[in-house]
Computed example of a mutant assay.
Amino acid sequence: MNITGRKSRAILAGCVLLMSVGCTTLYRNHGYAPTDDQLAEVLVGVDTRDTVSDVVGPPTAGGVTNGGGFFYVQSRFRFLGPLEPKEIEREVVAISFDEEGVVSNVERFGLENGNVVALSRRVTQDNVRDTTFIRQLFGSIGNFNAGDFLGDG
Score class of each variant (00 low, 15 high):
residue 70 F to P: 00
residue 139 G to P: 05
residue 66 N to E: 09
residue 114 G to E: 05
residue 35 T to S: 15
residue 39 L to P: 00
residue 96 S to R: 13
residue 130 D to S: 10
residue 60 T to V: 04
residue 56 V to L: 09
residue 126 D to H: 06
residue 135 R to I: 01
residue 113 N to C: 01
residue 44 V to L: 08
residue 67 G to V: 02
residue 80 L to A: 04
residue 121 R to G: 01
residue 115 N to I: 01
residue 131 T to N: 12
residue 116 V to E: 08
residue 50 D to C: 00
residue 87 E to N: 13
residue 80 L to V: 12
residue 37 D to A: 15
residue 57 G to P: 03
residue 70 F to H: 15
residue 122 R to S: 13
residue 60 T to L: 05
residue 92 V to I: 12
residue 70 F to K: 05
residue 102 V to M: 05
residue 104 S to P: 03
residue 92 V to G: 02
residue 62 G to V: 09
residue 41 E to F: 00
residue 106 V to Y: 02
residue 125 Q to D: 11
residue 49 R to T: 05
residue 116 V to A: 06
residue 109 F to D: 03
residue 130 D to Y: 07
residue 134 I to M: 01
residue 104 S to V: 04
residue 99 E to W: 06
residue 107 E to I: 03
residue 80 L to N: 06
residue 54 D to K: 12
residue 102 V to A: 03
residue 121 R to E: 14
residue 87 E to Y: 01
residue 58 P to D: 07
residue 136 Q to E: 13
residue 137 L to A: 10
residue 132 T to P: 01
residue 117 V to Y: 12
residue 93 V to G: 08
residue 125 Q to R: 15
residue 88 I to P: 03
residue 47 D to Q: 03
residue 59 P to S: 10
residue 110 G to V: 08
residue 102 V to H: 03
residue 132 T to G: 05
residue 117 V to Q: 12
residue 41 E to R: 04
residue 131 T to W: 02
residue 109 F to L: 03
residue 51 T to Q: 07
residue 79 F to M: 08
residue 72 Y to G: 09
residue 119 L to D: 06
residue 83 L to V: 05
residue 99 E to F: 12
residue 109 F to N: 01
residue 117 V to L: 04
residue 76 R to C: 07
residue 132 T to W: 04
residue 32 Y to E: 04
residue 37 D to V: 11
residue 116 V to M: 15
residue 54 D to A: 13
residue 99 E to A: 14
residue 136 Q to M: 11
residue 87 E to Q: 15
residue 45 G to D: 12
residue 86 K to M: 11
residue 98 D to K: 02
residue 105 N to A: 03
residue 85 P to R: 11
residue 133 F to T: 14
residue 49 R to H: 12
residue 69 G to Q: 10
residue 58 P to K: 14
residue 58 P to V: 07
residue 64 V to H: 05
residue 34 P to I: 08
residue 131 T to F: 10
residue 112 E to G: 10
residue 57 G to W: 04
residue 39 L to Q: 06
residue 104 S to T: 13
residue 108 R to C: 06
residue 95 I to L: 06
residue 98 D to C: 06
residue 93 V to P: 00
residue 38 Q to H: 07
residue 102 V to F: 09
residue 94 A to P: 01
residue 113 N to D: 15
residue 125 Q to T: 14
residue 93 V to I: 14
residue 111 L to W: 03
residue 108 R to Y: 01
residue 54 D to R: 15
residue 119 L to N: 01
residue 107 E to G: 02
residue 83 L to Y: 03
residue 131 T to I: 11
residue 93 V to N: 13
residue 124 T to I: 06
residue 114 G to F: 07
residue 53 S to H: 07
residue 40 A to V: 01
residue 63 G to A: 04
residue 69 G to A: 14
residue 49 R to D: 02
residue 47 D to A: 12
residue 100 E to R: 12
residue 96 S to E: 15
residue 32 Y to R: 15
residue 101 G to C: 04
residue 35 T to H: 11
residue 116 V to K: 11
residue 132 T to E: 14
residue 121 R to W: 08
residue 122 R to C: 02
